[in-house]
Design a protein around this nucleic acid. Structure first.
Lengths: 329, 329
DNA sequence: CTGAAAGCGCTAACAC
DNA sequence: GTGTTAGCGCTTTCAG
């Protein structure tokens, strides 16, 4: 059922119907009588406008693209939920996608979203998405990066104080008397991972302590991170504490330690909280990102960009809280 | 940059350009020369078709709506990821939304998706979404429900063997010698929750055991499930084992038990696995739904419906696996 | 107060 | 081989 059919049936013109539907009966100076007649009929047949046609005509899709690494992840999932909630309040819908860290896929996803005429994009970029992002910047597509930024490009960005929070975590371990602090991370150029790593390295260097670093991979199907970590732990028995760079690394690490029955002896602190971390034995210390605040800041920044496409890009750092629990005492 | 501008620039007609773009140069009998000229120019200016206009013209949006309760949840998040992956293989994109269990919101979301001309809908319905679903059924919108069904309506459905798996879990607790098995669940009419509950009640009845049931709410802002559970546990000290009806209930339960320092003494088994359940002390037994298989079945069922709108609705039950761990031994 | 008409960007039947 | 034309469902300007 379309607007023309309604018009035909009621013997009025399409524009009259359109004005009524869009609540512009007043300014379109439609008579109360016609307006009511139209409204009644619409109600009766349960007419719903075709949003595609509307978007095409107006050039507004009321849709935002949200691209994350993995929607099933305990960081990105809840963030996505909150972003959706905030965007809804502003009348936008969300078209999500997960890149799984795959650059090529990420580029395709971006393109598909642009093809679908999204009005803005929220993006946790993959390692080498620079050229895509640059194109969006040039075309003035409203864009907010979060979690990780692209240092070479002036973009809107919301993130946390990765370096400082990580320093605090490692320093805390040192203060607790751990002398051989290892770090497990992923081999990634993502700036937030680099910051976490650099913090670890800096603190150890300042204290004359030796680095014990393990890079593991969750993309490479041939690698089993749990095995890699337990092998590394066995090979380096002097390690007495561990710093994990992100949630899924932590899970793998905990599994490895459990296998070796060593989680009671090692100091542990992880970047990112997980629902059950506080219920482990020992309860696991972590750096906790305020997910809802991040989501809120992201949406706010996007909305600003949406209303002023020439707004200068800005950065917002939402501080994480360090949660000291039993594992690092 | 639009197809008309390209046509004008190259002094050919829109249809010629359109045919080339859609790889129909052959069947449209476009000369190799023109085709190449058009392809070159398209490449040069980086032309990308407007998917909205295309959808409007063809009546195909290549988009599927996915409506879950909470995209940040450890059940729905990973399922959504896999559904997205499978749908992508079939050339579809996904428009997700979370209902947060709110019926009104769910109805709005369904409508918005229909307005956007999605070609099919995958839905974990809220408690009373019958009329919306009925409307979709009438309009022959391809539809697959999952996790929970609507018993009164003949729909496609993918779910797990809630009743049998729950029976198995409760029977297992009985066999292990627990005599006072309690169950914590949510007050919900959702059939899958009802099945889990009924299984518990049946097994206890068959064994002449007394029910100890607690309904808690995660929607009501005034209620704190953790407190409610710990209060209930204190009031019923004879309870020696617990069956949790779903993931977030289990988390609340574990928190309550930790507060009371009782998780070592109680038998525990939960419906749904969580990433760290196997690392708790004790390791928590659970009923594990095969998420990827469920996602795959959902997509397959939808694809079938998409290619034959008159296909009779079918149901697919993916069996869950019971994971016996320390908490129930 | 209301209708006619052009146009959003694309497809597809049909003519030449 | 290629162009013309109508149309997808809507908005919006302008004329009356």
């Amino acid at each position: 059922m379309s607007i023309s059919e309604i018009a035909k049936h009621l013997k009025v013109s399409k524009s009259t119907v359109s004005l009524v539907i869009n609540g512009k009966a007043e300014e379109g100076r439609i008579s109360k009588a016609s307006a009511q007649r139209i409204r009644d009929y619409i109600e009766e047949i349960g007419y719903k406008p075709n949003a595609l046609a509307k978007s095409l005509a107006t050039g507004k899709s009321r849709t935002i693209g949200l691209i994350v690494e993995n929607i099933g992840d305990s960081f990105f999932g809840p963030i996505a939920l909150h972003i959706e909630e905030y965007l809804r309040k502003h009348g936008y819908q969300v078209l999500y996608s997960s890149t799984m860290g795959d650059n090529q896929l990420a580029a395709e996803i971006v393109q598909t979203m642009l093809d679908k005429q999204v009005e803005g994009i929220i993006l946790a970029p993959t390692d080498a998405l620079d050229s895509e992002v640059e194109r969006m910047l040039k075309s003035k597509m409203p864009l907010v990066l979060f979690d990780r930024k692209i240092p070479s490009l002036p973009t809107n960005y919301v993130g946390t104080n990765n370096y400082e929070a990580s320093r605090e975590a490692v320093e805390h371990l040192l203060e607790q008397g751990y002398g051989h602090i290892g770090m497990v991370t992923i081999a990634s150029q993502q700036p937030q991972m680099q910051d976490r790593l650099r913090a670890y390295q800096d603190v150890l260097a300042e204290n004359g302590s030796k680095e014990q670093l393990l890079y593991t991979s969750f993309l490479d199907k041939d690698e089993n991170p749990v095995k890699a970590i337990s092998k590394w732990l066995k090979k380096n028995p002097e390690i007495d504490a561990l710093f994990f760079s992100t949630n899924y690394v932590c899970v793998a690490g905990l599994k490895a330690m459990r296998k070796l029955e060593r989680e009671q002896q090692l100091g542990i602190i992880a970047f990112d909280d997980l629902e059950l971390l506080e219920l482990m034995r020992p309860q696991i210390s972590c750096i906790r990102q305020p997910l809802e605040k991040i989501a809120k800041a992201v949406v706010q920044m996007l909305i600003e960009q949406l209303s002023d496409k020439d707004k200068a890009p800005s950065e917002k750092i939402i501080r994480s809280n360090i949660q000291i629990r039993e594992s690092s005492l």
